[in-house]
Design a protein around this nucleic acid. Structure first.
Length: 567
DNA sequence: AGTTTCGGCGCC
DNA sequence: AAAGGGCGCCGAAACT
């Protein structure tokens, strides 16, 4: 059965394609065709297209209206496999993988290119080394064998397939964009910041607040300059280490109130103000560049526009097209539910088997009904809290959910000792992750305590006793969080893949994804079906990712015309 | 003058 | 109340 085909753009602008056998090797002759879109469109029976890079091929297909159901991204799989093999520092290009296979000199990866505002096809990668299809297939077949040698081959296969699906979703979201009303955005900016003056200076409200700050200090102070603010407080007899909001707010001084307000509004203007609107919104769509698996943990990143940090007040500008709706779906308490699933802690699984508020359930069992304490304890366990009430609460959590806490403790220990740590599906944390020594981190060198050098010339850093173990502890915190955040990302990929399939027969489009939250843009009459699809996709993702467990992954869904109305 | 790092804060 | 994990973004500061 030839349900998998390989595809590689040729250097003359055409495309090479070929059917693959069960071993992943060529099962027929390589064909040449004029263009990728025609080749794919003419073969609807192909269940999975195998290619070097989704970012290279898929945007061009989408541009001609061609979607594919499934793909396999060889370079993404190479990254995941290298990580699993403890070789995360090695080049991950198809050309490099081929060279390793044949014992030749391994070329370094081409440098990453960053996005420019408003660029039409941001994912095009012109500098990639061309690999002929026959060679590409060798790399693919070898990768299939490498899957078999991983700790859990079936999970690893699921991971590479799921992340390839994620790349399809990302490319489609990059194309569709997030519905965005520039008019509403401008109205929000005007309400918050006031009108702009012709001279190009600060908008009215910011200028007023700056004046209030200056008046409170009795001299001209620039509230956007931390050094100026620290000096001004010092002259008023108040010593502060930084101008972070929580530190400022603990001070009793008339400048605090306007200063905090200024910083809040300044942030809006700088990060999502008029120039942002100019750069990133066109034709009623905000078009960031989503990168699936852009982080070590597998979380996505976006390139340009800060799409994963849209402030709550600005979400008023996310407005569905006329007659359409936004289905906004947010996974409820995802991280502790994931912890339950990966640790198999009986008590936590039972709690996570209900769709009701998990933190409330935990608090009923271990914190006398104090939900806030329970939430702090759970998040502290996941993030590696080192001080404060978190530690005390962690002890209570450990008594009730010993297996869950032991799971993250063991991950932290492994991280501290420089061992590999993996998500449920097998995404692997590089041994040096979380360290503060950038040079070693970039080189992928595991740093033991003995190797960490406090006098590395990186700055006027004074010598601190125990500095070396500071790195180890940072790696421990990173690894502790990695197993939860990363396994949550595993699950989220399966969710996206399932939801994408469910939407395939509808006009509905996935337009936004943010760790545990997804937005589908659809005609009003499809909204109910989308809500159902999300629930079903969640159930499927839970079973596929973690196997049969009692753990449920409920979503809060809202059908709205405006994103801001979802919360 | 151009490039990199830092500080602070937005989101999860 | 505060501090643990992951990111990106901007202007200012620091550097070359």
């Amino acid at each position: 059965m030839t349900d998998r085909w390989a595809l590689a753009p040729a250097e003359d602008g055409g495309v090479e394609i070929a059917p693959l056998g069960p071993d992943g090797l060529l099962a027929g002759p390589v064909r040449r065709e004029a263009d990728a879109a025609g080749a794919v469109r003419g073969r609807p029976e192909v269940a999975r297209w195998v290619w070097r890079s989704t970012a290279e091929v898929y945007p061009r297909l989408l541009a001609t209206g061609v979607r594919v159901e499934r793909c396999y991204d060889i370079e993404d799989a190479e990254t995941l496999l290298l990580g699993h093999e403890g070789r995360s520092g090695e080049p991950r290009s198809a050309a490099a993988a081929l060279a390793r296979l044949r014992g030749g000199p391994v070329p370094p990866d081409p440098p990453q290119r960053s996005a420019e505002p408003g660029s039409q096809s941001p994912l095009f990668e012109p500098q990639a080394v061309h690999v002929p299809l026959a060679d590409l297939v060798e790399v693919y077949a070898d990768q299939q064998r490498r899957h078999d040698r991983t700790t859990h081959p079936e999970r690893m296969r699921l991971l590479t397939a799921a992340e390839s699906a994620g790349m399809l979703v990302a490319a489609e979201m990059n194309r569709s964009g997030l519905p965005w009303s520039a008019e509403v955005h401008r109205r929000v900016l005007h309400e918050l910041l006031g009108e702009r003056y012709a001279g190009g200076g600060e908008p009215r409200r910011l200028a007023e607040l700056a004046d209030e700050v200056s008046a409170a200090f009795g001299r001209r102070v620039r509230p956007d300059l931390p050094a100026d603010v620290i000096k001004a407080f010092a002259q008023a007899g108040i010593r502060i280490r930084s101008t972070r909001r929580w530190e400022i707010e603990s001070i009793d001084h008339p400048a605090v109130k306007p200063l905090v307000e200024y910083k809040k509004l300044y942030r809006i203007r700088v990060a999502h103000g008029w120039s942002w609107l100019q750069d990133w919104v066109r034709d009623g769509r905000f078009r960031p560049e989503f990168l699936a698996g852009g982080t070590v943990t597998g979380r996505w990143v976006t390139n340009g526009g800060g799409a994963l940090q849209i402030p709550k007040v600005i979400r008023r500008a996310v407005v569905a097209d006329p007659g359409w709706r936004l289905v906004v779906a947010d996974a409820d308490q995802m991280e502790p539910r994931v912890l339950a699933a990966i640790s198999r802690d009986p008590g936590l699984m039972e709690v996570a088997g209900r769709e009701t508020d998990l933190y409330q359930s935990v608090s009923d069992r271990a914190f006398s009904g104090d939900r806030d304490q329970a939430k702090i304890a759970v998040l502290g366990a996941v993030y590696g809290q080192t001080s404060g009430d978190g530690l005390k609460n962690l002890a209570a959590l450990r008594r009730r959910f010993p297996k869950a806490v032991a799971y993250v403790d063991e991950a932290a220990r492994a991280g501290e000792e420089g061992r590999l740590v993996r998500t449920w599906l097998g995404r692997t944390c590089p041994p040096a992750a979380g360290a503060t020594d950038d040079a070693a981190e970039e080189a992928g060198i595991p740093m033991s305590d003995g190797q960490a050098d406090p006098s590395d010339g990186s700055g006027p850093q004074e010598w601190v006793p125990g500095y070396a173990s500071t790195n180890a502890r940072a790696r421990g915190r990173f690894a502790r969080n990695f197993v939860v955040q990363g396994s949550a990302a595993d699950w989220a990929l399966l969710l996206l893949a399932a939801l994408r399939r469910a939407c395939a027969g509808m006009a509905a489009e996935l337009v936004f994804f943010q760790h545990d939250e997804v937005i589908v843009h659809c005609p009003e009459e499809e909204a109910e079906a989308v809500v159902t699809a999300i629930r079903e996709a969640s159930d499927l993702a839970g079973r596929l990712t973690f196997g049969e467990t009692p753990v449920r992954f409920p979503f809060t869904t809202a059908v709205v015309e405006c994103y801001a109305d979802a919360k």
